[in-house]
Write a protein that binds this DNA or RNA. Structure first.
Lengths: 192, 192
DNA sequence: TATAAATGAGTGAGTACTCATATTATAGTT
DNA sequence: AACTATAATATGAGTACTCACTCATTTATA
């Protein structure tokens, strides 16, 4: 290899894209401005990402990885189901609040029409341990056995996101929302 | 007025926009194609909606009204809290399944950057009775009193939408998801 | 008959992507 | 260690194209 690509430039482009996507939406953020903000020539953007759609797909995978890392670092593998569930709950919310742009872009990407099936599949990879935990909860008779696994996972995601959204509009109640949100989830899926 | 605008044309344009937005996303649906699909000249689109953004905002309000109607028709005002909550739950899900395009577009509009604050506010208007019901639930000691009202509303919306999304991928389990989803919500927000 | 809607070719402002040229990190040679 | 050849990246003006919106003209209705 005569001259290697620079991971720094790649990251700068992804960061710039995140910022502009969050501020204006996917379609209204031109590659010319993304590259300018990243401090590279427009052509350079296209040596790192063949098309704008490819950039968007790469960004999605990157963000999902970050979120997965945030949720799973220090994961209390030995803890009971409640402890583990609470860990990922707290981490997810913390990440969403600490990275509002990334969080917002993720929401935009998910409803966009440009994500490939491969990207969507790749995006679920970081969350295998989460699936395991849900299965543990059901087999260990902690979760209600009449609830489908996929509904529990979905309910988790839906409630975290609702909680983060609320927090964004009333940051002073962050802790309240975080705790109450979890209580709704826990009471909702566990046996009485 | 020499020649009145036609409600039919206006609806045709909104319908065409809904279809194309759902298929390709807001940005990739040109006004030229929307008008063609609606069976009017492109100029006509602009006599009904001054700009594309205005069209999008109008569509949002229209869809929210439809959803509100669907949820609130035959609303059992005299029923107990569970009956009333279940009513709007079922109607919301039924509407989402019966109108997948509308439902999808609504999701896109909510994360888009073109909705004005006025539109967002107007969008909540059809749901005043829902708010009342939540307050009833808290005052009547049916819902847990430590949960913030706004979190309960948000949790409702989040769980319905999660349920509809799941149903879209596995229609055969529609009833199961509908019932189980509601159980999660109900167990989550009521006193033990 | 007056007034407004309907039409669709035209316009100007962008936009994603290209490509000829300049630059530079690397591997090989001495 | 210094030099060179090589092959890749970096650059940004240029290109082909698309799109939201306009406007002169035609058509319909009160």
């Amino acid at each position: 290899m005569a001259r290697p690509k620079s991971q720094d430039k790649r990251n700068a482009i992804l960061d710039a894209a995140t910022q502009l996507f969050a501020e204006r939406g996917l379609a209204a953020a031109p590659t010319s401005e993304i590259s300018k903000l990243a401090g590279v020539a427009e052509g350079t953007l296209f040596t790192y990402f063949g098309t704008k759609d490819e950039l968007i797909n790469s960004l999605y995978r990157e963000l999902k990885l970050e979120l997965g890392d945030a949720m799973m670092s220090d994961f209390p593998r030995k803890g009971n189901v409640r402890t583990r569930l609470r860990h990922v709950w707290d981490r997810y919310i913390r990440w969403g609040i600490a990275n509002p742009r990334q969080y917002k872009v993720l929401a935009q990407l998910l409803v966009s029409e440009v994500l490939t099936k491969e990207s969507r599949d790749a995006g679920t990879a970081p969350f295998v341990e989460f699936q395991t935990m849900v299965r543990d909860g059901i087999e260990g008779r902690i979760f209600r056995s009449d609830l489908p696994v996929e509904l529990i996972s979905k309910a988790f995601a839906a409630l975290v996101e609702a909680t983060i959204d609320l927090t964004a509009s009333k940051p002073s109640k962050t802790n309240k929302y975080r705790d109450s949100g979890f209580e709704i989830l826990w009471a909702g899926i566990t046996r009485r």
